[in-house]
């Protein structure tokens, strides 16, 4: 079914841009080479607006708006790069680093990590909040993969790819607030999961070293994400 979509014109950082009415601010910005940091967003999965890195200012709206879940509107004036936003984005990263035990130097994903890259990109040279050093588990019960809670940032990409693309819904989140964590099935060891198809999509979309392949040593775990846009495009074409 061909939907009728209107073209909207708007300003991003003072530049006139155009996009379809069913596109988000983030999509339109990236189409115009305006970069914005994101962690929970990944092309091909639904957006949840959780990491707050892609927040933008929109003229006439009091609150900051997540650009990944907000559709473009005619005449919108969007600012993606104010000093205030830069400050908040750095603080988001600092809070993440302080939350769990992200020891980059000994991480399988060292050098291939979205969190580590963003820290450099946004200029986080140290974390001003006390590190919390929680005691967290590592689940190596799966034959091929490892879950290291120490490095999880709760972006829920694994939850979404498993549900929306693989259709297994092995992953979900349990617990509240600072105690929240991703789990497989009903908080059973991953290796004993009856729903997991061992497809490995969760591992590939994970932005950090929280999910990795067994046998990879420090800095060896680079992720292959080409499958995701490929699969979504193929499915859209079929529809």
């Amino acid at each position: 079914m061909a939907k009728q979509v209107q073209v909207k014109t708007l300003k991003i950082n003072g530049v006139d841009v155009g996009g379809r009415g069913d596109q988000t601010i983030l999509q339109v910005a990236r189409e115009h080479d305006i970069e914005m940091p994101t962690l929970c967003h990944i092309e091909g999965l639904s957006d949840v607006g959780a990491c707050r890195l892609c927040l933008v200012e929109v003229k006439g709206i009091n609150k900051l708006i997540p650009s990944c879940t907000t559709l473009v509107e005619e005449g919108m004036e969007v600012t993606t790069n104010s000093e205030r936003l830069a400050k908040y984005r750095k603080m988001v990263l600092e809070l993440l680093f302080a939350e769990r035990n992200h020891i980059c130097s000994v991480c399988v994903s060292n050098g291939h990590c979205d969190l580590q890259d963003l820290a450099r990109l946004l200029g986080v040279t140290h974390v001003r909040y006390p590190y919390r050093y929680p005691r967290l588990s590592v689940d190596a019960s799966h034959q091929r993969f490892v879950l290291d809670q120490n490095r999880c940032i709760l972006c829920t990409r694994c939850v979404r790819v498993c549900d929306e693309i693989e259709g297994a819904h092995t992953w979900d989140v349990m617990g509240r607030g600072i105690e929240a964590k991703v789990i497989t099935d009903l908080n059973q060891p991953w290796g004993s999961s009856e729903t997991c198809t061992s497809c490995g999509k969760c591992v590939q979309v994970c932005p950090t070293g929280a999910l990795s392949e067994k046998g990879k040593s420090v800095a060896e775990m680079s992720k292959r994400r080409q499958f995701l846009p490929y699969l979504t495009t193929m499915r859209e074409e079929r529809e």
Partner: peptide, 15 residues
Amino acid sequence: ESCGKCIPCRVGTAQ
């Protein structure tokens, strides 16, 4: 009582 979904509330309230 934070649900833990967004980072500012999840970690910010704890800090």
